[in-house]
Design a protein around this nucleic acid. Structure first.
Lengths: 230, 230
DNA sequence: TTCCGCTGTCACGAAACCTTCATCAAACCG
DNA sequence: CGGTTTGATGAAGGTTTCGTGACAGCGGAA
């Protein structure tokens, strides 16, 4: 699965490197040269993760991180700080401002990818490429396929994302609003009842192998994917 | 989800549109033409949300937002900014104002409603999500499930909320009207006797595993959930 | 171009649910 | 022990929520 990543970095060289290697891993990359431009971008659709350089012209990265964490709409977005120094207090300060992780320059693309994956797995499991399996139903983001007892299941794009989200967040109820935010996107506006329709299509696709019972309706609350039957 | 919304907007046309479409969705609407009038209104009962035009005669919307955020009594009130679509605004208007979201004119009523809903949900006090367990009866708000000795218990929405409240406030008597306030909501007009019926249904659901004895009637006072039998 | 798959929306009907009411049982009080 | 108060119970009516089928718009493929 690919995530949208906002890179806030003023050095064009590093910008390019990041754009390239993130792109290689299937991530969508947005770039900002400074804090102001970053804030502008954040007014639109939210990225799934922010890569933030510690040293920026104008408002520093730390200050920017603080602002992001102080904003109701943005505070849930994971931040990884890029820092040039390895001083111990830098790390502490960086983490105190609300960064989810930090990485010191120079860094290997491999290390960066590993950290991104770790952060995403913690904050947004459906953004990682890990396959998920629950009671014989297996979803593999890499091949973008779903198997029910080793038999392929045909799903539309939205049903796939929906199932992916639910499988990476099982045993928990999500309201229609929450599902719209998580599966459709932050600034997408569709009717809540549309979720019902996609749930129904998803159930229909899983019905052949009896896995439709995984998806449970919680009246008055939303939907839940659970290995325990009702 | 109906709320009281303060609209701060000087253009009578937009004022009317907002009043109409917010009203359509069951929201209570207060209107202010400028910052002074708005601050006057805010001295009274607090609205649940503020819709604030960025361009206002006199004190600008941004300045007003800053004041609101700087006021201890007002700073928790969510703000959605209405902005005109110009590039300069995008650059200048960061997050410094502390707005919870922005919407650019012209906007569709549907989009506005969606954002209002999203903001209200985000700010909504989410009740504690920790699971509660008393004598083998376990209630988990996250999955919205109740287990009696590891076997699922079927409950309607109201019974679930009722049990949740009682389990998080055990060993204490609550009168019918207290339960109505706590479980049904503050300003709800419902007969007190209705509580009896839901208590009964809750007991019936718990009876299969003998947990109905947890819910005790205190004659002349109300109901109590207690681990100690009568 | 047409065809086809996907999406979002709507309308309708079924099911679950809430509230109220009438009635019965139990507890309390003199 | 009668009368009274309080709670339990069962059923009915109305409302809300959910599932389902249909359909138009859209964009890409043929």
């Amino acid at each position: 699965m690919s995530a949208t990543i906002l890179v806030i970095e003023d050095e064009p060289g590093i910008q390019e490197v990041l754009k390239f290697s993130l792109g290689q891993h299937g991530h969508e990359v947005l770039v900002a040269d400074d804090a102001e431009s970053a804030l502008g971008q954040l007014r639109g659709a939210l990225p799934d993760l922010i890569l933030l350089d510690w040293m920026l012209p104008g408002m520093s990265g730390i200050e920017l991180a603080r602002r992001i964490r102080g904003d109701a709409r943005l505070k849930e977005v994971p931040i990884i700080m890029l820092t040039a120094r390895t001083l111990e207090n830098d790390k502490i300060l960086g983490l105190e401002t609300g960064a989810d992780d930090y990485i010191t320059k120079p860094f290997s693309p491999r290390e960066l990818m590993a950290r991104i994956k770790a952060v995403l797995r913690r904050r947004a499991p459906q953004m990682t490429e890990d396959a998920v399996e629950i009671r014989g139903l297996r979803l593999d983001p890499r091949s973008h396929r779903v198997f029910a007892a080793d038999k392929p299941v045909e799903l539309g794009p939205t049903e796939f994302r929906l199932l992916h989200f639910l499988m990476t967040h099982p045993e928990r109820v999500y309201s229609r609003s929450q599902l719209l935010d998580q599966v459709w996107g932050d600034h997408v506006f569709v009717e809540e009842r549309t979720v019902d329709v996609h749930i129904r299509r998803l159930r229909a696709a899983l019905e052949a192998d009896g896995h439709d019972s995984l998806i449970q309706t919680v009246r008055g609350a939303g939907y839940r994917l659970s290995a325990t039957p009702d």
